Amino acid sequence: MEQHCLVELVQVTVTPTEWVERLEALPILKEVSIRIDRGQFITLVGRNGSGKSTLAKVVAGFRTAGVTGSMILRAESAAGVHRIPIVMQQPEAAMVGATPWEDVVLMLEQNEMEWSQIIPCAEQALHQVGMGERMHQPIETLSGGQKQLVAIAGCLAAHSPLLVLDEVTAMLDPEAAMLVLERVRALHKSGVTVIWITQKLEELRPGDRIVAMNDGKIAYDGLPEGWFSRSINGHTESVCEQLGFEAPYAARVAWELELLGVRLQPFPFTADMLAEAVSSDER
């Protein structure tokens, strides 16, 4: 099936202009090239200061000072502008409505959507993220995870071709974080393209495209199998370990088994994958 490119960056560098003026030209992004195709789930990882949030803003079409290189942005919102909304850690900071329904409707009005489409689009999006029954509930009574879902509904209602989610589970408890992740995974299965920014490798799933940032550059771009493999190019440490990430428990167990001569295939990095791999190996 032919892939449709939404965003392509070629040799993009971002150097803050205020640093240039002080002769401290330290780029945040350094000649980054990446192509994002429709329907992908990209898990964008990186330590604080690695450049992952800046990369997300450039991909989303936000105006960023000190940008050089080539950017092809074919992704457009419902308003026909090359700027995709980003859902942040604290969505309530951008909420203006008293209820989820009002917040999404006001956001669509600000985006100058045709009035006749606003209410149907808002209500459909809230139902998509599982907030249909709470659309008229006061915002202040919602949990952190529910507020994130309202913010995601706003992106869907605006017909955003990309969901860009910047560490949206970082400040949530495990139950709320799982709720948001499951909803986003369901949206991806329905055809939504997702850029999921995180430092939690437990949120990885089979088939994800991992893009890892390190010191302003893309240090890895590929599937989880390569990310966790300890046998690429003769290294005894995986790319995950080389970049200083803590692997999920399942992956650490699989590595220990490898040291004992037991190599599980496919490499398990989730609890479900580990249980299935061990069960298959026993058979």
Rank of each mutant, 00 (worst) to 15 (best):
Q3R: 11
L9A: 13
Q11I: 13
V12N: 07
T13W: 12
W19F: 12
V20W: 15
V20K: 12
E21L: 14
R22V: 14
L23N: 14
L23W: 13
A25T: 15
V32N: 01
S33D: 00
I36N: 08
D37K: 09
F41H: 05
I42M: 03
R47N: 09
N48W: 03
N48M: 05
S50F: 05
S50T: 05
G51A: 01
K52T: 00
T54D: 12
T54M: 09
L55G: 03
V59A: 05
A60T: 04
R63S: 11
T64F: 10
A65G: 14
V67D: 12
M71C: 15
M71D: 12
L73D: 15
R74Y: 09
E76G: 13
H82L: 14
H82F: 10
P85W: 14
P85E: 15
V87A: 10
M88Y: 13
Q89R: 10
Q89L: 07
P91V: 05
A93E: 15
V96Q: 11
G97N: 03
P100M: 00
D103T: 08
V104N: 03
V105L: 04
L108R: 04
E112C: 02
M113Y: 02
W115D: 00
S116W: 07
Q117G: 04
I118E: 05
I118Q: 03
I118A: 00
V129E: 07
E133M: 08
Q137M: 09
Q137V: 06
P138I: 05
S143P: 01
G144H: 03
G144S: 05
G145A: 01
G145M: 05
G145K: 03
Q146R: 09
V150R: 04
I152C: 08
I152S: 09
C155D: 07
L156W: 02
L156A: 01
L156I: 13
A157V: 07
A157P: 04
S160G: 12
L162A: 03
M171K: 02
M171G: 01
A176R: 03
L179N: 06
L179K: 05
R183G: 04
S190I: 06
S190F: 07
G191E: 11
V192R: 14
T193K: 10
V194I: 10
I195H: 07
W196Q: 00
E202F: 11
P206Q: 09
G207Y: 10
I210D: 01
M213E: 00
G216C: 09
K217W: 12
K217Q: 14
A219S: 08
Y220F: 15
D221Q: 07
L223M: 15
G226I: 00
G226N: 04
W227Q: 02
F228A: 09
S231M: 11
G234K: 15
T236F: 11
E237K: 13
V239T: 06
Q242S: 06
L243K: 04
E246T: 10
R263L: 12
R263C: 12
F267M: 13
T270E: 06
L274H: 08
V278Q: 12
V278R: 08
S279M: 11
R283G: 12
